[in-house]
Design a binder for these strands. Sequence first.
DNA 1: GTTTTAACGGAGTTGTTACTCCGGTTGTGC
DNA 2: GCACAACCGGAGTAACAACTCCGTTAAAAC
Lengths: 178, 178
Amino acid sequence: MRADAQRNLDLVLGAAQECFAEGGVDVSVDEVARRAGVGHGTVFRRFPTKEALLDAVLSKELDRMLVFAQAGLAEADPWEGFAAFFRAAAESYAQNRALHEAKERCHELPQMPAIEHAARELVRRAQKAGVLREDLTPDDIGELVPVASRYPDVILDGLRGQPGVRGLRPEAGAGVRR
Amino acid sequence: MRADAQRNLDLVLGAAQECFAEGGVDVSVDEVARRAGVGHGTVFRRFPTKEALLDAVLSKELDRMLVFAQAGLAEADPWEGFAAFFRAAAESYAQNRALHEAKERCHELPQMPAIEHAARELVRRAQKAGVLREDLTPDDIGELVPVASRYPDVILDGLRGQPGVRGLRPEAGAGVRR
DNA sequence: GTTTTAACGGAGTTGTTACTCCGGTTGTGC
DNA sequence: GCACAACCGGAGTAACAACTCCGTTAAAAC
């Protein structure tokens, strides 16, 4: 690969990361090209469609997410391991609008099975230890991550232990609307 | 107003309500007109812009929200009053994609001050009674409403009483990332 | 330094969406 | 029942976004 091609590829990827994080998936390819300082023809040669460009950016984000999940599993305490991953994932969502808006796209990407496997394990371990409410599946908790991006401790308090454990709401329901 | 004009206005409003609730704000005006069974010219005579149409739909939704807030205030128990409003609002968000996507637009609408006033009162009363965590402002709680649309009880458990009250997390932080 | 060859970028195409306009139609006052 | 005004709806416009193409430019091999 020629030196200028490599340099421009890096510029495009960096610009796309910034644009999609700040403006969400509806930012135009022209805008990305402008920020990268290249023509949009250059963007489309590297990435045949806008979707391919978005996938590349999301993939990098998911790589980081997988690292967080594995770090959580390495933690000895079940709650701390789960909470650490949950917070880290929420932080990622908080700093990246595209992650919110392209959730289903993420599920098509190759990193996803590994992340889901690790997340399931984190949840299973915490529930077995009795520190995570059991009326939620890993999928439910996955949906709460983006939600927790601004209020992580409120959500974590809500997830802790068992539903209604504080004894204040004996009529507490399942906690999930399906 | 002529009878046919009134009938078509109702059809358009109903169709817009359904379309925006199901498909979000990006549903095209053509799609709304098609569902209403009128030409899109008819839509644009009633509502000069798509935004005006959206505002009309959101207004009706906010009217319902205000009723919920006032019903919450009429409830004697501070927690039940707060929680009832919170659940009702979450339910509305769960059933209306446009409400999620046009949050800032809602704040421009005339119903908003009254809703905010009632919500502030609900929060203040619950916090004074010690049944709602005090590290959150009414605005914070407002942001949790859409979030709670699928997991109302998880969020309500998280909001109950004081942060970390279960004694499991002495290091519990503020619960809010600003 | 020359030649080759890959990469660049902007003009242009296609498709979509918000919005306008006007000829035809239909409800309503007299 | 008639005239007139209001209303209807679809053809047409403007703007914008994704994507293509090709003449020009510049890197790299010798």
